[in-house]
Simulated scan of single mutants.
Amino acid sequence: MFSQVHRFRTLGMAALAALGLAAPGLAAQAQPDTVPVDERPSGLVTREELMADRLRRIGVDNPDPAPTAPRNRADSVEWIRWRRAANAATGRRIVVSIYDRKLWLIDGRDTLLEAVAGVGMGVVRGPKGIGMRDFSTPRGRRTVLAKQADPKWTPPDWHYEGLHDGPLRQFPAGGIPLEDGTRVVRRGQHLGVQRGAQFDTIPAERPLVYGGVMYIPPFGTVNRQIPDVLGKFKLDTGDGILIHGTNDPLAVGFWGTHGCVRLFDDDIEFVFDNAPVGTPVFIY
């Protein structure tokens, strides 16, 4: 017998106050998406407008929202293929619908959780003439390879593009010589300024800007790790595609990630507790 879903989170296509642009974590005032623009209360915008404005503010000038239906025949074939695979699967599994912006945790014929999910923002053009980036959530069958509580995000190089008006370079193996004769060097997991025998660590949150150049922190250093972005929990499905929480709930239920699946904190906690390593993940 099918059991009823015992935990739901609903999220309409809310209209948010313009204040949400500066503080996306604030609660939104819900408004139906069907209200014509000229009948909306003054000062309110749709979530789609809010997300598009956010992307443009960081330099993405052609946001390409993830679709809510197949765009062409090839897209339709792939969608049908993986939806059928998800429907035919047995046992405990995670199922994600890109079009519906939903995640389900299913065990046999029982749905343990239905949750609103954020998905990839699609194909976008990066800031300052940087080439196209595909931030779509990939369809297919994946597996929960690892889980972590209180995770930190290790961003790819593209995260640093557009954060600085000047040149962007990799952190050199020999360190960065400074005008006063000191040098920024790596010591284990930390970057710092070497002054003779003294080593002063550089706070992880401080950008590495010297001589007008921004340097990308090396992998394996605390300077390359960003806290809170992934929320309280993450499930790693490989190739940089995570199922995780968030400190920015605006993108939950919408197209605002770089390919990951983003959930509200209580939903990701439930998935974290009830989807062991090895759980298959179907995305269609």
Rank of each mutant, 00 (worst) to 15 (best):
F2E: 13
S3C: 08
Q4F: 02
V5R: 06
L11P: 02
G12N: 14
A14W: 03
A18K: 06
G20I: 03
G20D: 09
L21I: 14
A22M: 06
A22I: 01
A23M: 13
A23S: 13
A23T: 14
A23K: 15
Q29K: 04
V45G: 09
V45K: 00
V45M: 15
L50F: 02
D53T: 11
I58T: 10
I58E: 14
I58S: 09
G59I: 05
P65G: 04
A69W: 02
R71T: 12
D75E: 14
S76V: 07
R84A: 13
A86K: 04
A89I: 03
T90R: 13
T90M: 08
V96W: 00
D100Y: 05
D100Q: 13
R101L: 13
W104C: 05
I106C: 01
E114S: 07
A115K: 00
V116W: 02
A117T: 12
V119M: 01
G120Q: 09
G120C: 10
M121V: 14
G122Q: 07
G122F: 02
K128S: 14
K128A: 15
K128E: 11
G129V: 05
I130M: 03
I130C: 04
M132V: 07
P138C: 08
P151T: 12
P155E: 13
P155M: 15
P156D: 03
D157H: 09
D157C: 10
H159M: 14
H164P: 07
H164E: 14
H164M: 08
P167C: 10
F171C: 12
I176D: 05
P177H: 09
L178Q: 15
G181H: 05
R183W: 03
V184T: 13
V193C: 07
G196C: 13
G196K: 11
A197L: 07
A197M: 08
A197K: 09
Q198W: 05
P203I: 04
P203H: 05
A204W: 10
P207G: 13
L208M: 10
P218S: 04
T221N: 07
V222M: 10
G231I: 04
D239G: 10
G245I: 05
G245N: 01
P249G: 11
V252T: 10
F254T: 07
W255R: 06
H258W: 02
H258N: 09
G259K: 01
F264D: 06
D267Y: 02
F270H: 04
F270N: 08
D273Y: 00
D273M: 11
N274M: 01
P276D: 05
V277A: 12
P280W: 00
P280F: 02
F282R: 04
